[in-house]
Design a protein around this nucleic acid. Structure first.
Lengths: 210, 210
DNA sequence: TGTACATCAGTGAACGCGCGTTCACTGATGTAC
DNA sequence: TGTACATCAGTGAACGCGCGTTCACTGATGTAC
């Protein structure tokens, strides 16, 4: 794991290996985001220190702070897509896949609490130039969900006029649930122990053919 | 509406009327939050300027910036509660009430986009001293929803083992939906026109007695 | 009715700080001859 | 094999800025006698 105390010096990269620092910068920035829990609280100076480098070095790899944070987000979204893919891989049918994906999504969000809040709440929605639409953060994961719902419809298990609309509903439910659980609503509302399972089944029930 | 250009001077309050400025500060802070869309981008100096007063005056009314923003949030949450109350007042039954509340909640969120994002994403979850638990932002609105679901269960329309769990699921869905619609997912995903109705009915269907 | 005085709502200037970014530079690495 | 040189990954110092907050103060308002 990247050194975040920032006291030790970092050996200079060899000549063709400038990209090494780029990855270390993204690692350090992400870890700081997780620690601080707020994109505005993470400064370029802090990122540089965490990586063991001086602030101007960051500008050798990213045009500005926004672009740097955008790439951190992209990596995390891809991770969410991977989690959903792994969760659904062993499912018996679409309903089963959906439940598994829901559990995995919420569990992953809760296991990376601050990262989740930060990455899904980050304000820099300015997309840097040269980023294709289909590569945008979160799109792959979302269309994976649409695909599962389409399978369920084809198999006659789900009744959904529009799989995209249904996917938006399901995703909204899971995203909203993670947000509520993370934002400490639990300090003031009695959160049932099996809330994830309960809400997941409720969402699934909303999709089932009637 | 409060003057936000901040060029005009504000007449000093008469002796017993110090609370007038307090309200004006909250108004100005909220409007700035809406304009900026980010709690960190709103400074005490900017709030003071918007109200037509010098920065130190704010400290006559609020201990610090966190406390000021907390009170802004509280007012907005109360507004959401009022919107839900008005929406459900003419409903024929619990299912109807739920649909109406869902529509109103999402519509209100979408009609106040930046305010919604800011207030539900604001980081200052430190609760100032002297705030009772049941007065916490959002609690009234949430328990209003629980009440409607309990009515539906009593009437035999809804099947919900735990109304609180069911309410969390419904709220999560609506909150998540507003977040997705506001965060510009629509630029990259084809959002169906009737998405609110569609997701609302899907959520309701998940609650219905089977 | 007149005046001395306490109270209260503000002011104006300053504090120390960390920020994003730029600029001229250095010195190790690799290459051409 | 040795050396001059171009390239590249960084450095160190500085820029101007806006921030939250504190401090000693002012001057209008209301009150006691």
């Amino acid at each position: 794991m990247t050194d975040v105390t920032g006291t030790e010096a970092r050996p200079r990269a060899r000549k063709g290996e400038g990209d090494l620092l780029r990855q270390e910068i993204l690692d350090g920035a992400e870890q700081l985001l997780v620690e601080k829990g707020d994109a505005d609280a993470v400064s370029m100076r802090a990122i540089a220190k965490a990586v063991g480098v001086t602030p101007p070095s960051l500008y050798l790899h990213f045009a500005d702070k926004d672009e740097l944070l955008f790439h951190v987000c992209t990596r995390r979204y891809e991770e969410f897509d991977a989690v959903l893919g792994a969760a659904s891989s062993g499912a018996a049918n679409a309903a089963d896949a959906l439940l598994r994906m829901g559990r995995a999504y919420v569990a992953h969000g809760l296991a990376n609490p601050v990262a989740y809040l930060v990455l899904f709440g980050v304000k820099s929605d300015v997309v840097p130039e040269g980023i294709a639409e289909e590569d945008l953060p979160g799109m792959q994961a979302f269309f994976r969900l649409v695909g599962v719902i389409e399978q369920g419809v084809t198999a006659g298990d789900f009744a959904a006029d529009d799989p995209v609309a249904a996917a938006i509903g399901v995703w909204a439910t899971m995203h909203g649930l993670v947000m509520m659980l993370l934002r400490g609503a639990g300090d003031h509302v009695p959160i049932p122990e099996d809330i994830v399972e309960s809400v997941g089944r409720q969402a699934l029930h909303g999709l089932l053919a009637r």
